[in-house]
Amino acid sequence: IAVCIKQVPTREWQPRLTDDKTWIREHDVSYEMNEPDAYALEEALRLREKHGGEVVVCSAGPARVQQVIREALARGADRALHVEDDRLAAADASVTADALAAAMAEERFDLVLTGLQSDDLGQAQVGVVLAEKLAIPHSTIIMDVQADPASGSVRVKRELEGGWFQWIAMPLPALLTIQSGINQLRYATLKGIMAAKKKEIRKVAMPDARPMQQVIGLALPTRAKETRQITGSAGEAAKELVRVLREEARVL
């Protein structure tokens, strides 16, 4: 089982732009594992517990992404593939999928798991594009995985909008994009962290890849509404908010 894991800025991070305003200033960013990818990893570990086999982490990015690779190994993944290249820090879905496909070229995975989208670029593309490049079937926004290695198939629960779901079956090998909340995460133990130090991280060279889109500028988002900010101490703000909700908005 392969699990694709991306390193992304932490949720608390406040964006600062480069001078040409086409990317963020990376040197003052702290990073973490993309949230749905953590769930994908957990799902892979559970499948391994049930069916045996090996969990292999795949990550594409500059040297700094070793942080999340080590974390995944500490949580229980067996080994890792790292496509290392500085251009991958802000690569589009097509380039990233090419890089991950190159990493997987010499492997034979039964199942490839990705997160459903990244917390930084939020393209919701890399998993599906990777499936197409690997010529394997896929399904997205998955909330349950029932693998049947004996019959070479997998049946998965796909989330639809508004609280609806659907089961869908397909032959293995297959790629699934995992939704947050599919399982309860485990965290690394001290033993896991020690064991991770000895696990293999194989470096893979960046393949030739053609970008399919270009960022021409970044900006703060525009606001749909003018928010009236209520200031003062907690007590003052509370008093004023209750007053405006009663007297101006008339919703109490």
């Binding site: 963020i24 917390d119 670029l121 053609r210 970044l218």
Partner: peptide, 20 residues
């Protein structure tokens, strides 16, 4: 045309052009 899309969980908006 250029296209605006949210990135970093809506903290920023990126203007993007398709290539190819």
């Amino acid at each position: 045309a250029a296209f605006t899309r949210p990135i970093f969980q809506g903290k920023l908006a990126a203007q993007v052009k398709p290539l190819g």
